[in-house]
Amino acid sequence: MESLFFFIFSGLAILSAGFVVLSKNAIHSVVALIFCFFNASALFLMLGAEFLAIILILIYVGAVMVLFMFVLMMMEVNFEKLREGFMQYLPLGLMISLILLMEFAAAAASNIFVAVTHKTDPKTGEFILDEVTKNIIPKAEPLTAQVNNAAEIGKVLYTQYMFAFEVAALILLVALIGAVVLTLRTRKDVKYQSIPKQVRASKADRLRKASL
């Protein structure tokens, strides 16, 4: 029963991901991507990672994809023009993707990905690596009901990954500054109302005594 659901969700995720790339209409692509995210979040739910599942929907579907929609609808992107030269680049692109596909298949078949969960010392949480064990494919198991997802994530996020967390915050700050700097412009040809200027205005600035 569980594997049936797994195949349904992952199959739909792959199909919708394919649709994202192949669809001619950009809006359809975004909708397919949203559908893909829903399927991925269902997979998370099946693993008992309800916090990640909800976060995925809230952030990606609720915020990022809506923004995508906005951008696509606000800007008139000429997709016909983007598609120019498609046939010209097709052979090269196909060749590269085929090579990559073969590489990935070979990499996946090399069977040396070890299960991370089996490799940490339960007491100290320290990483131990005795020998590269072959043929252990990480087994994803549903978490038990006792495990509180959000609390567990919080525990590692603010301890082990503290440095990464802080630097990520700085990166967001830079992104914010960058976005403002690159888009904020005061246009000379438009009349603005400047409230500070209005407040600061005094009699001396405006009133002039003229002797007649």
Partner: peptide, 26 residues
């Protein structure tokens, strides 16, 4: 995926095994 860790030293430890060095994934 091969080493299970992001620390440079752990990756080096995992890669010091012969199987890891010759594998396509690495």
């Amino acid at each position: 995926g091969v080493s299970g860790s992001l620390h440079f030293s752990d990756v080096a430890k995992a890669l010091s095994h012969h199987e890891a060095q010759t594998s396509m994934a690495v």
